[in-house]
């Protein structure tokens, strides 16, 4: 990825439209500064996130993937985030079998009003990924 600056790593975020995407918007409106590594994909609901999207991203160049939805019981679609939680928790446990450190994947719940929480989440997760370094240096896969 020639375009990525020397310090940046590749982080992909799947954000539900109603809560977390709004939360990221709120963070923007409030000018809460964040690291620039993250690239955001908008999905209607965290329940729309197929675990294969995450795997595909990680296998094809992403160093970390973040999924964020509405808080449990506050889902715009009643309980899409509960389905997300089940699938993503399972995925987190499966990642080591693919030779990927499960710390590279994180899922969380952020509401549309929680701009500050979004800032914190992005900052912490980016730090965590930088600590792990690039996924595709081949080190992790050999272990």
């Amino acid at each position: 990825m020639s375009e990525v600056g020397p310090k940046e790593l590749r982080i992909v975020g799947f954000l539900c439209n109603w809560c977390s995407y709004g939360g990221a918007d709120t963070a923007g409106v409030s000018r809460f500064k964040q690291p620039t590594d993250l690239r955001i994909i908008r999905v209607p609901c965290s329940g729309r996130v197929d675990p294969l999207f995450v795997v595909k991203a990680l296998l094809n160049g992403a160093d970390g993937v973040l999924v964020s939805g509405c808080h449990p019981r506050d889902c715009h679609y009643s309980d899409g985030n509960f389905y997300a939680r089940r699938r993503l928790e399972m995925l987190k446990r499966l990642l080591p079998f693919l030779g990927i450190d499960d710390k590279r994947f994180h899922y969380t719940w952020i509401s549309a009003s929680e701009g500050q929480r979004w800032q914190q989440t992005v900052t912490d997760f980016t730090k965590q990924i930088h600590k792990l370094g690039p996924l595709h240096s081949g080190k992790e896969a050999q272990q």
């Binding site: 375009e3 600056g5 963070a27 809460f32 500064k33 690239r39 908008r42």
Partner: peptide
């Protein structure tokens, strides 16, 4: 492509922001 709330308002570095914007638009 949301290059305001998710990019220009939250990133300090113009170079990094520009790259992020280009990629977001490509997506």
């Amino acid at each position: 492509a949301n290059i305001r709330e998710h990019i220009s308002w939250v990133g300090l570095d113009k170079e990094a922001n520009t790259i992020k914007a280009i990629e977001t638009i490509k997506m």
